[in-house]
């Protein structure tokens, strides 16, 4: 899914949705366009990326579930910091995130 389709540009109630400036973040080394200040999980969703981790036991894909920092399903590795709940972590330019449990990553 293309980013353009996933982002709500004009909302019937909220109008034109305000966003931070466009920046690049890196998911498993691959550049992704995101908006500064939005949660990493939202940026990934906007880029059509729903998998945030693979389980250790069964190598199953998981994605954001609660979006309010409780379920921890969206936890990913933020380079230089460690595991973060991506739904609570704002995008900053150039940040590098890694998908836990991803094979060949």
């Amino acid at each position: 899914m293309a980013e353009k389709e996933m982002r709500v540009e004009k909302h019937p109630v909220l109008g034109v949705m305000g966003r931070g400036r466009r920046v690049t973040i890196f998911l498993d080394g691959e550049p992704i366009t995101a908006c500064e200040g939005e949660p990493v999980a939202a940026a990934l969703y906007a880029a059509g990326r729903r998998v945030t981790r693979y389980t250790r036991k069964g190598h199953e894909a998981r994605g954001p579930f609660c979006m309010i920092g409780r379920c921890t399903e969206c936890s990913m590795v933020l380079e230089g910091w460690g595991m973060v709940r991506t739904c609570m972590t704002p995008v900053r330019e150039g940040m590098r995130i890694w998908t836990p449990g991803r094979k060949g990553g």
Partner: peptide, 22 residues
């Protein structure tokens, strides 16, 4: 546990706060 299954509130957060469709 598949990505894309989420709380209704989670979807609401995505669209209404972050302006991103789930």
């Amino acid at each position: 546990t598949l990505p894309g299954v989420m709380g209704a509130g989670a979807a609401q957060t995505l669209v209404n706060v972050h302006g991103v469709l789930p």
